[in-house]
Computed example of a mutant assay.
Amino acid sequence: MRTYLALSAATAVLAGAGATAYATTADTAASGPARPLAGMRILISNDDSMQAAKASNSDGLGLYELRRAMCAAGADVVVMAPWQVQSGKGTAVTNGGVLTAQRRTALPAGYEGDCAQAPSAGAVYGVCLSAGPCAKDSPSATPADTVKLALRAGLRAKAGWTEAPDLVLTGINSGPNVSAGVNDSGTVGAAVAAVDQGVPALAFSSSGDESQLNFPRVNYRAHAEFGARLVAGLRQRGLLTPKFALKVDYPDVSAGAPAKAPVWTRVGDGAVVYHAFEQRGDGDSFDIALGLCPPAGGGEGECAEGRADADSTWLLGKGHVTIAPITWDRTYGSPVDARRELNRIEHFVKHESPRP
């Protein structure tokens, strides 16, 4: 949190999916509802890229739903996201080379006008590791790269923001980020990069359908609209803090069952997805595969969950929205230096937060 604030004080810088038609920000504004995020500047990133081209909706569609909801609530939004899918990158950063932030002009169908009335028009940038224009096969910046770039130079250069944004949002991820998988999550890693720079952050992740191979638009949309109300509630109460990030996971609602009320949780100590390795014959090579634990818990070994308030239990086993605080400080046993803020946010989630 430290580097960004030091830079700010010293230099005052930083300052397809289907073709279904959806309501735009302009449409929403015309109908005259309250715009609770008016005046806020929000940076959005993710780890799924900004491509939104796969039929499974696993490569960034959730980002556009999040952008849509925040602009509809009145925020000024800029997106800087990885050029390629970077799932599983955690807090990884790139230590050399050149990053290019290339603006996307042709947005996915149905999302073109969502931020037309916002000062930054919801500009979307994909960030690649290249000294020239990003090409189809260009290597990508990591999620943490995109946030660090945006906060330290990119937003000033591309959007003219001479101060830090009010908030960083990451996601909406294709699939939940719970239990041991939180350590691998680029969505969470990007949010950690934001609070490390002194900017409040929330990380959003949505469940897939029953197969966990497809990520229905309805899940993203429900989560994004809930997220806008959640951010509005936190803002109204002065609870947006850079002391820690909030991880917000949303259950599958694509089969018609509504999400249940938000629950304040801890990161589970078991696994939901784990890496499995199978040797090829007697050679030196191993195939990498992902193993799945029982979705409702009750597994053995690394799948066993020992915490009653685990995020995975309440999200996957009980169908609740789950919210957990995530800190950049990995010092075991260190005192919580934002206990008052933590207690107030926990109270808000339990008693005052919006319902799905």
Rank of each mutant, 00 (worst) to 15 (best):
D269Y: 07
A52M: 09
A308D: 10
A203L: 01
R340Y: 04
T327N: 10
G132T: 14
Y125M: 05
V178I: 15
P216M: 14
A135G: 11
T24Q: 06
G281V: 09
K54I: 02
T91H: 08
A180M: 06
A153R: 14
C128W: 06
S87F: 02
W83A: 06
A180Q: 12
A289W: 14
P258H: 05
R266T: 09
F277P: 00
R103M: 03
T105M: 01
R103D: 00
L315D: 01
D27F: 04
A29F: 08
V79E: 12
V321N: 06
R217E: 10
H275P: 03
G319D: 02
R67A: 13
T331R: 15
A38G: 08
A72F: 05
G171H: 03
V98N: 01
G126F: 11
S285C: 03
A164H: 15
T162D: 10
L61K: 07
V336M: 04
T142S: 10
P251S: 02
A276G: 11
H320F: 08
Y332W: 12
W328L: 05
E65A: 04
A150W: 00
E302P: 15
V127M: 12
C293R: 03
R67E: 12
R35D: 08
A29H: 13
Q117Y: 11
E341H: 11
A194W: 08
C293G: 08
V218F: 06
M40W: 04
I172W: 00
E278H: 06
F348N: 12
V199Q: 12
L246G: 07
A26D: 12
G283S: 05
V93R: 10
A261G: 13
A194N: 10
Y250N: 11
A73Y: 14
A324G: 01
A30C: 01
E65T: 01
P258N: 06
N95Y: 09
D137G: 04
V188E: 01
S211A: 10
P139Y: 10
L37I: 06
T162L: 08
W328I: 04
D196F: 02
A19N: 14
G283W: 06
A150Y: 05
T241Y: 05
R229L: 08
L66V: 07
S285Q: 14
N177E: 10
P33L: 00
Y64W: 04
A109D: 11
